[in-house]
Design a protein around this nucleic acid. Structure first.
Lengths: 341, 341
DNA sequence: CTGAAAGCGCTTACAG
DNA sequence: CTGAAAGCGCTTACAG
């Protein structure tokens, strides 16, 4: 009595075969309306629910996707996850979250688990594929989409902004406001996605406007708040007499604002700061942070959409560069006005 | 050749039965060391990985748990999720995230999906159980743990702080700093977990210190930033001449700080503010927010630990009230000093 | 120490 | 329109 009813129990009760119940459950054809009513009634009475595990064993589809993040506890990740989960749910898929913790071993471990659990697809967030991952992915033979990252292998499409261009635009924006002495707070030096291209965009913008780009104008952090404070302090110590800073993440920008305040600098009166990401934090700091907006939620949705497309049609999706834009708030001062006054 | 190898393929290759391969895979006894080597070699050569779906069908255990959140994109949720995921992973469990979106229908929908997918347990975050949920949960017959919420049913243990006491302590802290004209920004009025007890704690602290607790000193928000700004503005409009505010979430506290600044009030010089949660935002706003610390990450871990205990031992875990504490930063001014100067 | 066989709860040709 | 039966990839008594 306390046993969970199976399709057999339903069949017995409705006095039909399990095949018929299965057909009705799956909306296939091949039964009279009378039979259908009888079966539906039995299902209702018994409180029957199909076992998705058993179903998956036949179908070889679990309607579950895996998402790998390097850091779960950042707004960046949760905004993306929100978008992914949203789309997946709409399409009746579930999402398994994996926190790789910026650690290769944990990623490999997760890949093995996800393989065993037969997920229908995988989304990598902010992670660069190593050869080991590639080997494992090839063996898994399921669709993969990268978010805020990219790979040369066409089998692994990505969804991201044009980081180089976005950094170029952020820097140009500062220049447009009359700034010339612009420093940058970059993320981890060796990150080929979120650091190198942004540095290049920053340098290119300076060069295109006749400003020299010097290494000592760049300080390195790790994208998190504390490192932004440290980087800003380092920059200040160098005595560069700067008027503006471009930070490669909003958290680092907030950290920089903190360091500036501690050094007696007012933002934006004494120092202008522009961030990157436009996570909710940006609008919650004071003054609200001018930053490069990345449509994180949409990026998550797009990535999920591509993944499911690949999972259900076996075709490979195309990469997508989503538009970024400068979100003007109150941390950048226009010095042009001052000069012309 | 491109087919994924199964346990049968391994058995054939190692020239043993599938039963033997299964035993070796599961670390059971009953085979010679020579056989073991042979099988392990075959597994290695073929790149075989057991199919967890098939295994689950036998075991009736999926080693997967579900977590339901009302809002994925808040630091509050992601800190909890981080703790849950962390513990689950250590114990070889996977976690399925569900964003219920403050919407009953979506919760019921998720419960059905999680039931079909045969999760081994469920964690509800910040959600009050309705009768409909209870019915479904009873039918699922799997362990459930509540986080930042609670329920009278002893089958559903919880992990949370003592909200009433925490609010009492926050308010008392303000009083200890010489404040008497203390307003409160509460969360959604009808929330029996995160609103009622905190309001009671606030009022009790006032009363215990001989200060009248009046309804007009309370403004209501929804825990998010924007509502904090609005609530603060409403409070200011009432002309209460207040010196301090207790906000029931850090986001609302940050919003209140914003409104205060816009009204020309300096924090903490003109207005003291204390928040609730101690999410990372609290240390990133300026000045850093004094707040009630909830050990979110640990709460997530504890909840997961209780859930797995229940899932694996069939005993029911006990509820846990975790310790909160006042995290002193820079948004509360001590007026005692001033008065005595 | 080892294997044949039943079974987990479904789906899906196949036959009627 | 309907059912018997094989099969999905494992595990687990049971027998030897």
């Amino acid at each position: 009595m306390s046993d969970i009813p199976t399709i057999r129990d339903v069949a017995r009760r409705a006095d039909v075969s399990v095949a018929t119940v299965s057909r009705i459950l799956n909306g296939l054809s091949g039964y009279s309306d009378k039979t259908k009513q009888k079966v539906l009634a039995a299902i209702e009475e018994m409180g029957y629910r199909p076992n998705a595990i058993a179903r998956s064993l036949n179908n070889r589809r679990t309607h579950t996707i895996g998402v790998l993040f390097p850091a779960l506890n950042s707004e960046f990740s949760s905004a993306l996850l929100h978008g992914i989960e949203d789309y997946a749910h709409r399409r009746q898929y579930s999402v398994l979250v994996c926190n790789t913790d910026v650690d290769g071993r944990r990623t490999m471990n997760y890949l093995k688990v996800l393989r065993e659990k037969q997920v229908d697809g995988l989304i990598f967030v902010s992670e660069v594929l190593t050869d080991a991952y590639r080997t494992e992915l090839a063996a898994m033979n399921i669709p993969v989409v990268l978010v805020a990252s990219s790979d040369d292998d066409p089998r692994y499409p990505h969804v991201k902004v044009d980081d180089r261009q976005a950094a170029y635009d952020a820097t140009s924006y500062l220049i447009g406001k009359g700034h010339r002495r612009i420093a940058m707070i970059s993320g981890t030096a060796d990150d080929p996605i979120a650091s190198r291209p942004r540095i290049e965009g920053y340098e290119q913008a300076l060069l295109d406007h006749g400003v020299a780009a010097l290494p000592e104008w760049i300080a390195y952090g790790d994208f998190f708040y504390e490192s932004g404070t440290l980087a800003m302090e380092a920059l200040l110590k160098r005595g560069l007499d700067l008027t503006a800073v471009f930070a490669a993440s909003d958290e680092m920008a907030a950290g920089a604002m903190h360091a500036a305040a501690r050094a007696g600098l007012r933002v934006p009166e004494d120092l202008s700061i522009i961030g990157y990401d436009d996570i909710r934090l940006a609008m919650m700091v004071h003054p609200p942070l001018t930053t490069v907006h990345q449509p994180l939620r949409e990026m998550g949705q797009e990535a999920a959409a591509k993944l499911l497309l690949m999972a259900e049609s076996a075709q490979t999706a195309r990469s997508l560069i989503v538009p970024h834009r400068i979100m003007e708030r109150q941390t950048v001062r226009d010095i042009n006005e001052i000069n012309s006054t």
